[in-house]
Design a binder for these strands. Structure first.
Lengths: 236, 236
DNA sequence: TGTACATCAGTGAACGCGCGTTCACTGATGTAC
DNA sequence: TGTACATCAGTGAACGCGCGTTCACTGATGTAC
């Protein structure tokens, strides 16, 4: 509601372009995303889109950032409704939110976590921060659980030398104080969550093999909590 | 070396088409795979390729099957050099073989395990059997470990009702006798292995975040063995 | 408040490109007698 | 072994399509005086 009419129209058109881009992504996939098609749906001649977006790649970047933020919002919203003092449940809530979002938005999920779009390289400056929102949320749950003494270190808590610096840099960058073994386990749980979501979204279990994929995901999450060092009594 | 010259030439040309297709996949990605480009590299006019392949989709299927088999061969070859009586090591060997193959062949890996190619649906009849070779190998290691009494059931070994039938069908289809909890844990380990490989191949950890990704993968595998119920003394 | 100029959204034509697929054809290879 | 016919690999032209991007332009919106 602020600025000149022209400025407001520009903001609106930008939003329209992102929305239409999202829709095309969902239907045709990232590789087939085309400025001309977006222009058509926008009701405008193809060259007009260049007033708003420098190139096709820039539109893709727009959609990548939009996707990460939408996923991040979904996770944050789910967390807002979760008990503040139960990190195991918060971990589960994050996992479920990722899965739900991914199943609802398979093409956008694919753009973020699937095969890279050939010839397109997401610019780090714009995508890094929104791209880390999920892992930031997860690490928050890890750190909370650790601080509350809910975690039992695994028997093989020793972390190889060649990973120690990387792990320390990760803790520092995310601003948490957690032991190295938990960084390692945390990464394992993180990739395992996305691995499961990938398999489901990209249909790697054959069709019909798993009658109740939601329940399978729940048992997967329970297993991952164990892997993170949650004692079983406190996981239930 | 058998058949008429014409037959031998046909086999050769088919092999050339698959090889060229593989190369194009590696360079331009699956979505950009084109019959015309393959024809160019084959040194032949574009319509000639239709003597060998009914359509672009059929070429994709050819490459999917080829990819699954190449990955399956890599896993089998690695297993052939692994100790026959150490299922924990065999599990690790499978994981490493998948990772190594995926890093060497990112585009083919992406075709098999990444975002589905828009508008293409792999025909089950041709892709199912080669597509299950890795999980068959993994389940072999699970079953061997279980039979040898190497696994300790987890505290929450109970499997939800809604998964029991699916799990039984999976064991039956793969021809192994393992308890339901091990099917569940086995799936978790399976998706976790591919989740880790996905992250690495598709560059989801930021560049340079992990100084020694190979070691990270090893610790990941060790964690997954624990999750499968291997007792720590026997994992080393 | 009115005018002169600058900014900017959108037009329409054009560039050169690559794609999948069909079709009638030529000429070489294979086969039946 | 030789001939007549059938099969098949590959040609070349064409179909209709969509793409990203550039460019000179019109006309509306905004701004400085």
């Amino acid at each position: 509601m602020t600025g000149t009419p022209r400025e407001r129209a520009r903001v609106q058109t930008m939003a329209d372009i992102t929305r239409i881009g999202r829709e095309h992504l969902a239907i045709h996939g990232a590789a087939a995303l085309s400025l001309r098609a977006v222009a058509r749906d926008l009701g405008v001649v193809s060259s007009a889109v260049y007033r708003y977006v420098r190139s096709r790649d820039e539109l893709l970047t727009l959609l990548v950032v939009d996707g990460y933020n939408d996923l991040g919002d979904a996770v944050d919203a789910a967390l807002a409704g979760a008990p503040a003092d139960d990190p195991a449940e918060r971990f589960r809530v994050i996992g479920r939110a990722v899965r739900t979002w991914a199943l609802a938005e398979p093409a956008r999920y694919g753009l973020l976590f699937g095969t890279p779009v050939p010839g397109y390289d997401a610019p780090r400056e714009q995508t890094t921060i929104p791209g880390t929102r999920v892992i930031v949320a997860m690490v928050g749950a890890y750190a909370q659980a650790y601080a509350a003494g809910l975690l039992t270190p695994p028997p093989d808590a020793e972390v190889p030398d060649s990973l120690r610096d990387s792990f320390a840099a990760i803790s520092a960058e995310l601003g948490v104080q957690i032991p190295d073994w938990l960084v390692g386990r945390g990464i394992s749980a993180w990739v395992a969550v996305f691995g499961a979501v990938n398999f489901e979204v990209f249909d790697q279990y054959g069709k019909g093999t798993i009658a109740d994929p939601e329940r399978l995901f729940e048992t997967h999450l329970a297993t991952l909590l164990e892997l993170l060092g949650f004692r079983c009594g406190e996981v239930g």
